[in-house]
């Protein structure tokens, strides 16, 4: 028969192609997870080391957590990090919410794709480039105003957090039926009432997701912070970077473990909130 001569691209079993049935898939998958999570294990383990070393484990102890907690520099850096992450994620989320409304809740207009690309600039431009650019710009402003406060860092963090807040909010809005607002207007809701009673409650999970993502991203940033900060404005990550240049103690592990725990908690809270509000 003619059919027998045809090359077949499908597996003989006739089942659709599945990557999971390919040889070596399981090995590769496990390898990837090991690479992702294995390095975290010694980090967390050595944060409980009773000794001074990152190489020899000398028994369990809270010693380095206590030491980090008592360290004035760590305290300042932690408070600064939290203030910075909280304000940057707040501002970024507000701006991202407005941007998401402007790019999804209107009739399509010319240049919409361009605006989408512009909003996501921080995802595309290398961070170091933004860092240098901000350094130069803020240096000029610092010279002119003689202001050296935290505002520079808040502005810089807000800027690069916007796309991280924007993407989940936009995704939420895109999955939302446009006719809901039309229905609200039909039922005598003014545009503001329609926004308050229908749009905002429905986009709330997206906003929360965006804010949490922005918070974690800000908390974690080194490059831009290192370039923009004035002297004595260390955040937790830049403080740790500074420590690396001196003697490394498990104190760094302890701080890292706390940051890790905060991230995990934030992401978990978000996951459950999102499931509940869906």
């Amino acid at each position: 028969m003619a059919e027998a001569n045809l090359p077949t691209s499908r597996p003989p079993s006739g089942r659709p192609f599945s990557i999971r049935s390919q040889p070596g898939f399981a090995t590769l998958a496990i390898l990837c997870f090991v690479l992702l999570y294995a390095p975290l294990l010694p980090l967390v383990v050595y944060s409980f080391n009773a000794g001074d070393s990152l190489a020899y484990f000398e028994g369990l102890s809270w010693r380095w957590y206590v030491s980090a907690w008592d360290n004035k520099l760590v305290q300042d850096a932690a408070i600064r990090s939290l203030i910075l992450a909280a304000s940057a994620s707040l501002f970024a989320t507000i701006l991202a919410t407005m941007a998401a409304l402007g790019t999804t809740r209107t009739r399509s207009y010319r240049g919409q794709t361009l605006i989408y690309a512009l909003i996501n600039q921080p995802l595309m431009v290398p961070e170091i480039v933004t860092a240098v650019a901000l350094l130069i710009m803020f240096a000029a402003i610092k010279a002119a105003t003689n202001y050296h406060g935290l505002a520079y860092l808040i502005i810089a963090h807000t800027a690069f957090c916007i796309p991280f807040a924007y993407l989940p909010i936009r995704a939420r809005l895109e999955g939302m039926d446009l006719s809901l607002e039309t229905a609200a207007a039909d039922l005598y809701a003014t545009p503001w009432q329609a926004f308050r009673r229908v749009t905002l409650p429905l986009m709330w999970p997206g906003i929360l997701a965006g804010a949490m993502l922005a918070f974690v991203i800000s908390l974690d940033d080194v490059v831009i912070t290192e370039f923009v900060k004035s002297s004595g404005q260390d955040t937790l990550p830049t403080y740790m970077l500074g420590q690396l240049r001196r003697v490394i103690t498990p104190e760094v592990n302890a701080i890292s473990s706390v940051l890790l725990a905060i991230s995990v908690v934030v992401v978990t809270i978000f996951f459950f909130l999102n499931r509940k509000m869906r």
Binding site: S179, T182, L187, P201
Partner: peptide, 28 residues
């Protein structure tokens, strides 16, 4: 639309998913 005493039943229904049945009916 919000100043017209005219209401619509939409093809997709457009019910508010974050409200109860009673909440939807009370909205207008």
């Amino acid at each position: 639309p919000y100043s017209r005493p005219v209401n619509t039943v939409f093809q997709s229904y457009a019910l508010f998913p974050h409200m109860t049945v009673a909440g939807n009916i009370a909205f207008g």
